[in-house]
């Protein structure tokens, strides 16, 4: 299994995927405080235009909250980037036929599956740490005095959502024949849970609720409000992992 994980790592680094992912997540990480910092300046620029139209803008008060609000907004973009750059993990190997040699050498399919899954989890975790770490350091530097309650917990919600993304990618990777189908499947699951989130009774149980960590920080929501979505997301991860494993056992390579 180690050998296969080593190969996955080599693939990540040598094909440049890790570099691209890192650049994207670093940029997004910097973007959050940058937008917050630029907001007053943008307001100033617009002030005169608005005045002519008879609108007056009050002074904006930029705090650490402004920065963290951006963090939760931009995470969806980052997740889409993650999906686009990770959806080829299984299907690329089916198309090239490289797994045939690995399987015929006696490496068990379970080991291949879990190597890919773990590599996915690790990559996401690393990217999450980059993204969150950069935002956190800037927020502390610029608005160090602002106390943002529950921020670490709210970040962990985002991490859990990413883990769900990676297990969905792995599961659809075992089912699909090409990366388009993986994109479609994973996208469809996210879209459906997003739509179901509009049903008031269901919204608290949908994984998409996990991007709503700002409410927790602002105090408009309690930790217990997130229990449902945490449990559902965790169950979905376990189910995806099990289905993926079972499908891959019998996958025609």
């Amino acid at each position: 299994m180690n050998a296969y994980i080593k190969k996955e790592w080599m693939e990540l680094t040598r094909t440049g995927r890790l570099l691209i992912l890192s650049i994207i997540f670093i940029l997004f990480g910097i973007l959050n405080p940058a937008i917050a910092k630029l907001t007053p300046w943008l307001y100033d620029m617009m002030k005169d235009t608005f005045k002519e139209q008879g609108l007056t803008l009050g002074t904006v008060n930029i705090t650490a909250f402004t920065c963290w609000e951006q963090y939760f907004k931009n995470i969806l973009m980052a997740i889409i980037a993650m999906l686009l750059l990770s959806c080829n993990g299984f299907t690329g190997e089916y198309q090239k036929g490289t797994l045939i040699q690995v399987v015929t050498k006696g490496l068990s399919r379970r080991k291949i599956y879990f190597s890919k899954l773990l590599t996915g989890f690790a990559t996401w975790t690393a990217m999450f740490v980059l993204y969150s770490g950069i935002t956190f350091v800037y927020a502390k530097y610029f608005w160090g005095d602002d106390e943002v309650p529950h921020i670490f917990l709210a970040m962990l919600f985002v991490w859990l959502l990413g883990m769900l993304l990676m297990s969905l990618i792995a599961m659809f990777g075992t089912i699909a024949g090409n990366s388009g189908q993986v994109l479609l499947g994973t996208g469809a699951v996210f879209f459906v849970t997003f739509l179901l989130g509009y049903v008031p009774k269901l919204s608290d149980y949908m994984p998409m609720k996990l991007t709503d960590g700002m409410a927790l920080c602002k105090g408009t929501a309690q930790v217990s409000d997130f229990t449902g979505s945490i449990i559902i997301a965790s169950i979905m991860i376990v189910v995806c992992v099990i289905i993926g494993m079972a499908v891959f056992d019998k996958k025609k390579l």
Partner: peptide
């Protein structure tokens, strides 16, 4: 498969 070495008709490798 541990007893077998296999050479496919068009072998493909991890090209990196």
């Amino acid at each position: 498969n541990k007893y077998i070495g296999y050479l496919p008709d068009v072998p493909e490798y991890y090209s990196f």
